[in-house]
Simulated assay, not measured.
Amino acid sequence: MIIYGTALLAACHLLGIFLGDLLGQAMGVKTNVGGVGIAMLLLIFARLYMQKKNILPKLTEVGVGYWGAMYIPVVVAMAAQQDVVSALRGGHLALLSALVAVGLCAVVISLINRMEKPSEEADAAALPTAVPTPHAK
C-alpha cells in the first residue's frame, strides 16, 4: 500500500536524523550534520534492496516514489534555514567542504555519463546524413 512507502520514509528520516546528530557530536558541533541527506540515501538504498529481493509491492513503490520526489523541495527548504554567513565566519572548513562536495558531484556525474551505453537510436542520430547537393549545370 501507499502508506507503507510513507512509513518507510518516516523510518529512514528518523534514522537519518539520529545518525546526523551522532555525526555532529563526533565532529564536535552541537547540530545535526547531514541528517536529511543520510535519510534520503537510506530511502534510496532501502528501495533498491527491496526491489532486488522482490519484496516491494507496486503501491508501496508509488508511495516511496512520491516522497522521494518531494524530498528535493524539503532539502532546499531546510538548507534555506541554515545560517551560511555564520558558518563561513566559523572557519574555512565550511568553504572547503562545499568545494569538495561540488567537485565530487562533478566527478561522479562525469563517471555516470561515461558508463552509460549509447542506444542504437542515439548512434543513428549521431551519424552524419548525406545532404543532396544540386548538380551544377
Rank of each mutant, 00 (worst) to 15 (best):
M1Q: 11
I2Y: 12
I2K: 02
G5M: 00
G5S: 02
T6H: 06
L8P: 01
L9M: 12
L9S: 02
L9F: 14
A10W: 09
A10R: 03
C12T: 03
L14S: 13
L15E: 07
G16F: 02
G16L: 01
G16V: 01
G16Y: 01
I17T: 14
F18L: 10
L19M: 10
G20T: 03
G20P: 01
D21Q: 11
D21W: 11
L22D: 00
L22W: 09
L23G: 02
L23D: 00
Q25H: 11
Q25L: 12
A26I: 05
M27Y: 07
M27R: 13
M27V: 08
M27T: 07
G28V: 03
V29F: 10
V29S: 07
K30C: 00
N32E: 08
V33R: 06
G34V: 04
G34H: 04
V36R: 03
G37A: 11
M40W: 14
M40T: 15
L41M: 14
L42H: 06
L42M: 14
L43A: 02
I44V: 15
F45S: 14
F45Q: 12
F45K: 07
F45C: 11
A46F: 06
A46D: 03
R47F: 03
L48E: 13
L48K: 08
L48G: 04
L48P: 00
L48A: 08
K52T: 10
K53R: 11
N54H: 09
L56Q: 02
L56P: 00
P57E: 04
P57M: 03
K58E: 15
K58W: 07
E61M: 10
E61T: 09
V62L: 15
V62R: 07
V64I: 15
W67R: 00
W67L: 15
G68N: 07
A69K: 11
M70C: 14
Y71S: 14
P73R: 05
V74K: 01
V74A: 13
V74N: 01
V75K: 01
V76Y: 10
A77F: 14
A79E: 02
A79H: 07
A80S: 13
Q81N: 14
Q82Y: 05
D83N: 15
V84C: 06
V84E: 10
V85S: 02
S86V: 07
R89L: 15
G91M: 05
H92M: 13
L93N: 12
L96N: 05
V100C: 09
A101R: 00
V102W: 12
L104R: 05
L104G: 12
A106V: 10
V107Y: 09
V108N: 04
V108F: 13
V108I: 15
S110P: 00
S110G: 15
I112Q: 11
I112K: 11
R114M: 14
R114G: 09
M115S: 09
M115T: 04
M115P: 00
K117G: 04
P118Q: 12
S119N: 10
S119F: 04
E120Q: 14
E120H: 06
E121Y: 13
A122Q: 14
A125S: 08
A126C: 05
P128H: 10
P128V: 13
T129R: 12
A130K: 10
A130T: 11
V131G: 04
V131W: 06
P132C: 00
P132H: 05
P132R: 06
P132N: 06
P134Y: 08
H135I: 07
A136I: 09
K137D: 11
